[in-house]
Amino acid sequence: MSVTIEQVERIAHLAKLTFSQEEKEKFTAQFNQILEYVETLNTLDLSGVEPMHHVWEVTNVFREDVEQPSLSTDETLANAPNRKMDYFSVPKVIG
């Protein structure tokens, strides 16, 4: 498996991040190093082994459907870059 610079650009686009050409090349090399390392696993015979979704064999951790206090509106909006009345205000988005 080999990561191309186009794939790095695609991932950057999905993450809504912008990078210089230099950075993109650096990340392409780094991504490939990581994947090469993980590919070590391919040397094992894993046929018939179920993928592991979680480290601990814990299932069904639930809470009951009982209302708990929420934050105050001021606390909720405390980190908002912009606030308009009791709403978060963000640059116009459609779609």
Partner: peptide, 30 residues
């Protein structure tokens, strides 16, 4: 445990889990 209720004043049924604040952890509603 925030209320699932339509028509409340905006941003009144919000907690660190809803906000995705660091360290907040979800627990499924039975």
């Amino acid at each position: 445990g925030c209320a699932n209720r339509y028509g409340d004043e905006p941003n009144t049924n919000v907690c660190p889990v809803c906000l995705g604040l660091p360290g907040a952890l979800p627990v499924a509603n039975r």
